[in-house]
Amino acid sequence: MAWIVKPSATTQIERRNEPYLTKEMRDGYTADLLPRYETSMGALMPILHDVQHRNGWIPKQAMEEIAAFLGIAPADVLDTASFYEEFHTEPTGKYVVGICQSIACEVCGHKAILDHVRQKLGIEPHETTDDGKFTLLALECLGSCDTAPVALVNDDLHEGLTIEALDAVLDRLPD
């Protein structure tokens, strides 16, 4: 639900001395991304993807740095980052397990799989395990309805899932 209001006015920003946007990253964006778009803000989504890819999630400090880099308001960055479900504005586990819950997966038995993972990891959707290894998400259609039920574990799509198959995938992941 992209439109739920976040308490941004009272948010405390955790800071660290080392910047999230290194010089090397900035140079890369200047050379590769900025020329692609007519406005600097056009490069915002690719940059957010890149920061999340490197860091696992997008901290507020990184948003401020991105805003300064692009010459836009930090609120604009928060606006975009908080709208899209795939951008995590809170820390996530090392592995993000997204189980598809849309129509084809539901009629092909996603519930048994979701319930199993909930019990196995001891968390509800949108929670992270205490050891920080797994975040569980219930996602909408992943666009692989012919092989339902499916789940996305980080960047890998696992199709035609059974409880055993997903167990095998999760158990194989190193700590």
Partner: peptide
């Protein structure tokens, strides 16, 4: 980044503009 509404043509344009 995971928003169905961006399949709407003008929503898609906004997303390319970074909004």
């Amino acid at each position: 980044a995971g928003a169905y509404i961006c399949g709407e043509e003008t929503g898609l344009l906004e997303a390319i503009e970074g909004k």
